[in-house]
Amino acid sequence: MKNALVIGAGPAGLMAAEELALAGHGVILAEAKPSVGRKFLMAGKSGLNLTKSEDFKVFLKAYGNASAALHPMLDAFGPDSVQEWAQNLGQELFTGSTGRVFPKVMKASPLLRNWLKKLDKLGVEIKPRWRWIGWDGNEVLFETPNGPQRLTPDVTVLACGGASWARLGSDGVWSKHLKKKDISPFKPANMGFLVEWSDHMKRHFGNPVKGVELRAGNLRSRGEFIISDKGLEGGGLYEVSQAMREGSPLFLDLAPDLNEGQVRARLSRPKGKLSISNYLRKSLKLDPAKQALLMEFAHPLPEDLTPLIKALPVRHQGARPLDEAISTAGGLRFDALDEGLMLRDRPGTFAAGEMLDWEAPTGGYLITACLATGRWAGRAAASYQGSATVR
Rank of each mutant, 00 (worst) to 15 (best):
D338T: 11
E296H: 13
F193S: 00
A292K: 04
I227D: 11
R333Q: 13
R131M: 07
P288Y: 08
Q91N: 04
F56Y: 10
K210Y: 06
G206K: 10
N278A: 09
P11K: 02
T373R: 00
K290V: 01
L250I: 05
A12W: 02
E324T: 15
Q149P: 00
G353W: 08
G223E: 09
E359C: 13
V101I: 04
S248G: 02
W130L: 06
A76L: 07
D304W: 13
W165E: 08
E339P: 03
S164M: 11
M106W: 08
D357V: 06
H299N: 14
R344N: 06
L168S: 14
K290D: 01
G13R: 14
R245Y: 04
M1T: 14
I367L: 15
E224D: 10
W197I: 14
D55Y: 15
R281C: 07
A388P: 10
W132P: 01
L74H: 10
A23K: 01
K104N: 13
F77T: 11
E296S: 03
R203P: 07
L20H: 12
G123W: 12
G364L: 09
G261H: 00
N3H: 10
N114Q: 09
T51M: 02
V58M: 09
G134D: 05
G24R: 09
D55T: 12
G37M: 06
S221G: 14
W132F: 14
R113M: 12
A377W: 04
L122T: 15
L280K: 02
K33H: 08
G330F: 15
G206A: 15
W130S: 01
G331F: 12
F186A: 15
L93Q: 14
G206Y: 05
A380Y: 12
I309Q: 12
A4F: 04
I309P: 04
G96F: 01
K176P: 00
V173G: 01
R150I: 05
A372H: 06
R391V: 10
K179R: 11
E324R: 11
T156D: 01
D323Y: 07
R269D: 07
P288G: 04
S387M: 14
L305E: 05
A66K: 04
S35W: 08
W115H: 06
S327R: 10
F102W: 05
S383I: 14
T306Q: 07
L356G: 04
G235W: 03
E224F: 07
G223N: 14
T368G: 13
K127D: 00
K127A: 03
A351T: 04
Q242N: 00
F59H: 02
V101F: 05
L22H: 13
L151V: 06
L286C: 06
R264I: 03
E18M: 12
S275A: 12
K2F: 15
D75P: 00
K61L: 10
H25C: 15
A352H: 10
F59N: 03
L341M: 15
E233R: 08
L219S: 10
L258P: 00
D75Y: 11
R100E: 14
N146S: 13
L14V: 13
Q291A: 07
F334E: 11
W165A: 08
P110V: 05
G162D: 06
